[in-house]
Design a protein around this nucleic acid. Structure first.
Lengths: 207, 207, 207, 207
DNA sequence: GATGAATGAGTATTCATTCAT
DNA sequence: TATGAATGAATACTCATTCAT
């Protein structure tokens, strides 16, 4: 059937736009990317981006929500309360870290939004809030409700330890020997995070 | 003599531009801020921005370098090697934290650049590298040279714990009770960081 | 159907821009003409100029190349080597002169570039070189290869005699009686050029 | 007397501006040169240009008039009616050519104005008119008052032969072997012009 | 005579978006 | 579903010019 794009091809274009937008936004930030850039990278007509996504803002929101959906489902799977505390926390760290590895643009996308203009702050807030609730839940009975050792602080600290590694990677590559996002480097970082959790848990127990 | 620009007013305009740029860039990011915005916020003619700073890029670089200079001098003051390890690290944490408190746009400015297009990545790289060297120096003899406990990882982790609190603040304000940047909340965060350092040091010693 | 752009109207806009640019550049020179001027003269939106031509420089280059193409084909048609020398040279003079009459902006456009900043000098150079080769070819066997009577000098002299009449026209109109670009005045100039060729050829033969 | 610029230094600045303007206008054209460029090239403060010359336009006019004054005096000296026709015309050609050689920007400055916007057309007109009257005077009794052989046409032809060599020089340098403005090349061109005058005079006599 | 600061108007160019087809 | 053409608003930047000192 020449001339008539098959159904799979149709969704293809919409998806290709989404993927291109994801990469470009992640690399360069919302403002630095033009719809023309996205269309070109996706190999589609510029007007088609608007046909499918309405506006540049909406497209960006779609990219974000898409991440949050898979983000949430990734973490939810690791939240079952079985086993001892260490195992449970270890599973969370792994799930979070796996997600970051699989979605490399995510960290930068989120940090840009948090540090930048508050245009899409609501989405971010929802996500952060959810993450914090989970941290609180995971540390229940271990961390106090208030003060410097509260789960709230642990959340910020762990989030930073988790996410900043991926955003710093590009800037630190020339300084460190080797690529911080290579497999062995990632394994090392994962081990660091596990160690950090262990140390903090011990500290909390001692308190 | 109102209306007549006194001598102190002269450098004033250049400074007002710098301050306005600092705030706006910090709040909204490089791309989202126009020179017109900056000029308006500084209360000066748009062309004057170019008269004093040459280009938007140069102005941004000036804002960054200005931070880095005071950042460096702030940390250098805390680097003397006297006293036991805990005291020394404690001084570093305080110095860093004090700097963040005093320069609220800094964290967001840096995170934007690190997560974003990297146009001014070189400046950031210099600064990050310097910070990392200091961390390595401060942990000398305590942290191994390689592996998950290396100073390199400690640097990323602490940097995240330090800086992300300030960038997350705006997004988390509605969730937490009270302003994360209020005096008492800041004191609490500072205590958390000191505690974190203690816990990590203990973990390193035990390793 | 007024108001509805017919198919012929489509390429119309791009062409109207080209024509407007031609006239304005010819009259006022590259720098003195703004894209706004061109758009206004063409009756189109300013951004459309960039949509079709990319940049002001490219638009100017298009105007020039367009001339050169027709210039070349006009002269090529007059270059066949049949008949006696006088006839052949006469045909060349007529072809060149016809072209100048039909493309009134051309002379000024070229002189501006030659005398001016030379931004588009390459195009001019190509064209001039080609013209010179033709002159050399046409005078082969008659003019020496070197010295004050070389074809090279004849080329500059004839080119000046040909082109300057059209550029001087505007400045000399008030002095001369009547319009130098009116039909009878042009016929007179054409006769002058034929006479000049005759006189020069005779001089070359006598040498 | 340190700190106090001597009188000669004062006129120095005004002159340096004039010279810089001359060169830059000649090279790049009126529009392409900014007052800042001129001031920088002259090594003076930008505002001083306005102090001395009032406006960019006025400065340009000054550059032109300055040329015309020396142009006129150069030619007037060659206009005495003594000696036979050949000698008289030869002296004119030499005087004109000498002037062009000594004032290399002149040709381009004039051609720019003639071909470009008519902003300073009046000055040019005056000068051209004067030149034409002289040509008519020099050819009195030889050339008819009207028709293709009129002095009017001779003027345009000779003017073109004279001036275009200097404007074409830059564009043709790569094509010709050697620099068209080198001493020997100039001598050759001068010989060409003398030959041309001779040939034309002969043709006029024969008519 | 000389200058640094200041400005309003203008420049080329880009962009998100719309729309007829 | 897909696209080429079209546009109004915005952007960074430049310029000739003025003026207080």
């Amino acid at each position: 059937m020449p001339g008539k794009p098959s159904e799979s091809k149709r969704k293809d274009k919409s998806l290709r736009i989404l993927v291109a937008a994801d990469e470009l936004f992640g690399e360069q930030g919302y403002d630095a990317v033009s719809v023309r850039d996205i269309a070109r990278a996706a190999g589609v007509n510029k007007a088609l981006v608007f046909y499918y996504f309405g506006s540049k803002e909406d497209l960006f929101a779609r990219v974000l929500t898409r991440y949050y959906e898979s983000h949430r489902s990734a973490l939810e799977g690791a939240l079952d309360a079985s086993g001892p505390l260490d195992k449970r926390l270890g599973r969370l760290v792994d799930a979070y870290f796996d997600f970051m590895v699989a979605n490399r643009s995510f960290a930068r996308l989120v940090q840009q939004q948090i540090a930048g203009p508050g245009t899409h702050l609501e989405l971010i807030q929802q996500n952060l809030t959810e993450l914090e609730r989970w941290t609180e839940h995971a540390l229940e009975g271990l961390a106090p409700n208030d003060g410097p050792l509260a789960a709230r602080h642990m959340f910020v600290t762990f989030s930073g330890a988790m996410i900043n590694y991926f955003t710093y990677a590009r800037a630190l590559r020339p300084v460190w020997g080797g690529d911080p996002l290579a497999d062995d480097a990632l394994a090392e970082r994962r081990a660091h995070l596990h160690w950090l959790v262990g140390v903090v848990v011990q500290g909390l127990k001692a308190a």
